[in-house]
Design a protein around this nucleic acid. Structure first.
Length: 211
DNA sequence: TCATTAACACGGG
DNA sequence: CCCGTGTTAATGA
């Protein structure tokens, strides 16, 4: 049994399933910035995230993007699940936010385990639920909140996943994720700095007090 | 009123 | 020099 599997999924799955995952899963290391899933791509395996952070986003037809949510270790991509089961194409794009380690599971196995293991079924259903909640939160932000609130949400979320109050990101990156312009982000960040809620540096933002 | 686009200056690597 | 940042002016929704 590989150590990484045990630490991240040991509590979740029964021993027999862990053994299968260990035998069948293929470890894959990716670097920050690598594209894991393209919009329109056919998928033949689902990833279990062992370590790192994955950014999942939606693209419009012009290639403009909007961030949907982050995935952390111990989680999987709900979109992959629905694509795999119907052998449909991906509706989303996934990028490695940090250097990450994935365990790739072929779709046949993931379907077989659905009938075979209760803990696997629970895991898949929980994943669906959690991702759906994340997407709803994002929709709320877009529909009901102004950009300044969206920015604060974004910073909080990012810091949570980085497990650090210091976020390494440029204003332009944030602008892409929130689908707005850098001018707006710079201005809002400057306001937040003036009210002592963050500290701005080149290529990084330090969260001081975000309510 | 507020976002977007273009443009410019400043400064660090 | 190039890139990230801060700011402004013009324009439009």
């Amino acid at each position: 049994m590989r150590e990484e599997i045990k630490t991240n999924y040991g509590q979740l799955f029964e021993q027999e399933l862990l053994n299968e995952i260990n035998d069948i899963g293929v470890l894959k290391n990716v670097n920050a910035g690598d594209e894991l899933i393209r919009t329109g791509q056919y998928l033949s395996a689902m990833p279990l995230l062992i370590d790192g952070v994955i950014k999942v986003m939606r693209e419009d037809e012009d290639g403009f993007e909007l961030m949907l949510y982050f995935l952390e270790k111990g989680e999987t991509c709900a979109m992959t699940l629905s694509c795999c089961t119907g052998s449909a194409i991906s509706e989303i794009r996934a990028i490695a936010e940090t250097d990450s380690t994935l365990l790739m599971i072929p779709i046949e196995k993931m379907e077989e385990w659905l009938g075979k293991y209760k803990s696997w079924r629970n895991f898949i259903f929980n994943s669906y639920h959690e991702r759906l909640m994340e997407v709803l939160a994002t929709i709320d932000n877009i529909a009901f909140k102004k950009m300044d609130e969206r920015l604060i949400e974004y910073l909080k979320n990012k810091s949570k996943h980085y497990k650090d109050s210091e976020i390494k990101v440029t204003h332009q990156d944030i602008a892409f994720d929130l689908h707005t312009s850098r001018v707006v982000i710079s201005r809002l960040l400057k306001q937040l700095e003036k009210t002592n809620r963050i500290k701005l540096n080149r290529n990084s933002i330090k969260l001081i007090e975000i309510a």
